[in-house]
Amino acid sequence: MGACLVIDRPGLFSSLQDFGRFGYQRFGISASGAMDSLSMQAANLLVGNGRGEATVELTMLGLSAVVEGGPLRLALAGADMALAINGTAADGWRAHHLAPGDRLEIGAARHGMRAYLAIAGGFDIAPTLGSRSTHSRSMIGGVDGRAVRAGDRLPARGESAGPLLALPAPYRPRGEGPIRVVLGPQDDFFTREGIATFLSARYRVSDKVDRMGAQMEGPAIAHAGGFNIVSDGIMNGSIQVPGNGRPLILLADRQTTGGYPKIATVIGPDLWRLGQARPGDEFAFTAVTAEAAALAAVEHERRIAAMAARMIECAPAGAALSSESLLAHNLIGGVCSALDPMSEP
């Protein structure tokens, strides 16, 4: 029996998520996957995993668990949730070694909405239809197709030994400015004024926000005619505008098809910001061309590569940092270029 995390408090909604389940939307299966895939990838990189390994996505309030069966190396990234190991506060955005009997406690998010718990080697849970992402309405993925419960044992697949990496604050994801969208595919269902409203007003995340989507509040967007279409495909970030004129942004657990016109699509590189949005957060939207969006996707890949390159090895929690280890891992260089951390490939 290898190492595992035994859950004793599951948190508000904790579920296994990876990049999502692709190839099955034509059969009515939502892709699901991490709501903030940028933080999920960071958590994986911190423990030496492939970027798309399944992590536990924690929502608003984290879980607590005890390590059994063997040592584990883990990291938490994403929303700022209080982390404690055996009752002692510990940092997010860095890896930690835990021994059998150690207790992990993750509290409420102080900023953001979702954090990602990765363990070295990933979770030893069989994928369903090519992914470990949980989609509770389809009853697939994760632990028996559902969110994590007290008493669940999440077994580790890999080797716990390995470096303890940390990502300095300047290189962590930051979201600023308007959310970028590509207009369409049904922008011709809206008046010119309606599109101007959408692109000039600020929209607030309502309390109707979850993994399926975010209902936004703000000025109504005027339709040119009707607001029913014959259902067609929906993607992550599709912005539907039903009869009430308020945008509804469809996210990871979206239905595969929908019957309201879609004014625009949030570009992939900006989706993670919606995954961290809380009710009351405000956003503006700005339109970019599909070509500019494709360039943004290239830039987004560079940011992830930069994040990986800027991870430094740190001493185990509690051990004093030696100047040799700091120099050896180029911490100084990292801090010096912090003014423009994402400018490098």
Partner: peptide, 22 residues
């Protein structure tokens, strides 16, 4: 091409713009 979603009257083709241009 990552996935193809046929519906009543349209096809949604999901692709990776890093591999295949629009």
């Amino acid at each position: 091409v990552c996935e193809i979603v046929p519906t009543y009257r349209s096809l949604l083709v999901l692709f990776d713009p890093l591999v295949l241009s629009r």
